[in-house]
Amino acid sequence: MPRLLSALLALPLLAACGDTAPQSDASQPADAFYVGVWAADPAWCTDQSEGFPITIEADRFLGRENTCDMSAITTTPEDGWTAALSCIAEGTTIEEPVVFSPAGDQLAIIWPDRGPDATLFSRCE
């Protein structure tokens, strides 16, 4: 279990425009700002010796050692999105919220259950 917790806590380090009205999962476009391949360090897009990118789909969040389904996706007043993550890593399911917000051409990701600090991700080309 400590290894799983460490892997999930390390995800932000290793690893959005819309209406202000909440939207359901079905209304999230495949071309939402958060959809793409992102890295906390742009070098990780091509050199994965020290870190690796994450892939965010319209309804899935994919890390190196985990897969998360995203549900209850709603827009925020700040032109971002909130979602409920249900992640499977090493056979264990973890559920937690996540917030995606545009930060210029970067994506700010906050895991509110872990604290208020955002991790900035750059889009991989």
Rank of each mutant, 00 (worst) to 15 (best):
I56S: 06
E57R: 11
E57N: 11
E57S: 11
E57V: 02
A58T: 10
A58L: 08
A58E: 13
D59A: 11
R60Y: 01
F61C: 07
F61I: 06
F61P: 00
L62I: 12
L62S: 08
G63D: 12
G63L: 10
R64C: 12
R64K: 14
E65N: 15
E65S: 15
E65T: 15
E65V: 15
N66Y: 12
N66V: 15
T67I: 11
T67R: 10
C68T: 07
C68H: 02
C68M: 09
C68V: 00
D69N: 08
M70C: 06
M70E: 04
M70G: 05
M70H: 02
S71F: 05
S71T: 08
S71I: 04
A72P: 01
A72C: 08
A72K: 12
A72Y: 04
A72D: 13
A72N: 09
I73C: 03
I73W: 00
I73R: 00
T74C: 11
T74N: 13
T74S: 14
T74G: 14
T75I: 02
T75G: 13
T75F: 08
T75E: 02
T75M: 10
T76Y: 09
T76K: 06
T76S: 10
T76L: 04
P77A: 10
P77N: 06
P77T: 07
P77C: 03
P77K: 06
E78I: 00
E78N: 06
E78Y: 02
E78R: 07
E78K: 03
E78G: 00
E78H: 01
D79P: 02
D79G: 13
D79A: 12
D79S: 13
G80P: 05
G80Y: 05
G80I: 09
G80T: 09
W81T: 12
T82L: 11
T82I: 11
T82N: 14
A83E: 05
A83L: 10
A83H: 06
A83G: 07
A83F: 07
A84K: 13
A84H: 06
L85V: 00
L85S: 03
